[in-house]
């Protein structure tokens, strides 16, 4: 490569890499959101299960 082309390639590679890293960080945050949502779903399931048990035993509202 001549005439400084390697520097041009390097500059665009850096831009590319950092933007991809940013997107990866965003993906990790999305993963956390998904985990949270699943946790809440499990909590709701537990609560519903407890509710039906209570009703079956006749102590529900």
């Amino acid at each position: 490569m001549s005439g400084g082309t390697q520097y041009v390639v390097a500059a665009y590679a850096v831009i590319w890499v950092i933007l991809v890293l940013y997107i990866v960080a965003m993906g990790l945050r999305t993963a956390r959101l998904a985990r949270e949502a699943e946790l809440l779903l499990r909590l709701l399931d537990d609560r519903d299960a407890a509710g039906t048990r209570d009703e079956a035993a006749g102590v529900g509202h």
């Binding site: 005439g3 400084g4 082309t5 520097y7 041009v8 500059a11 665009y12 831009i15």
Partner: peptide, 9 residues
């Protein structure tokens, strides 16, 4: 020369 192409972005 070529390095000016860094400039755009």
């Amino acid at each position: 020369g070529q390095i000016q192409r860094i400039f755009y972005f």
